[in-house]
Amino acid sequence: MPPRSSTVDDAEVDRFARLADQWWDTRGKMAVLHKFNPIRLNTIKQAACRRFGRDEKKLDALAGLRILDIGCGGGVLSEPLARLGASVVGADPATSNIEVAKLHAAQSGLDIDYRATTAEALADAGERFDIVLAMEVVEHVADVELFVARCGEMVKPGGMMVVATLNRTLKSFALAIVGAEYVLRWLPRGTHQWDKFVTPNELEIALERAGLRVVDQQGVIYNPLADRWQIARDMDVNYMLVAERAS
């Protein structure tokens, strides 16, 4: 391969490299996301091992499963899933995110199919997956029901979908908006709009209309003493739903 000659390209690559460092610095701007990652990975992996009869202790527990990670960002969730053997498609509408994710996957020596595209476009193209993930995205989309329907379309018979999002409660306003964005400054202000948050009930109805049945739901709470997120019954703020399509 000849060396790059265009200075524009080099500048772009430098910018993405800096962005990648930000995405992947577990103590930097994305610290909250990295702290949140183990708990959602655990839920996805457990549900997948149950659904597809895999051994949770194996390092290639997800081998051969085709997974779609919608809103993959810099690839923080896609990479561990690929490491567990899954064949991952990471989709994000932001081209810069996709460039960052590609760059980092190459550094990590992982083969991930990153695409700058949307869930709708993938559904239109007739893509099908064993597992569709919509982790921390439904609170950002314009039409939740339509989005869930298009994601659900892509779940193969016998497959599953996992959704993680924020509930629309007084508590979530206090913690996720006031707490996380204004007091603790974990997230930039304006990251979330509270009125776009979705209740578990609304989400379950949307999933059922898409032909999926909710088989598990759990709350996620932050334990400040251990500085760790953990599974809880309390679904007032962060929560995850696991839904399956009959085979």
Binding site: T26, P38, K45, P80, D227
Partner: peptide
């Protein structure tokens, strides 16, 4: 072992911080 079974990189700060604590 917990981290690697989730596909996480065992050398990252978050993983090691749990050991240190």
């Amino acid at each position: 072992v917990d981290a690697a079974r989730l596909g996480l990189d065992p050398g990252t700060h978050d993983v090691l911080e749990r050991y240190q604590r």
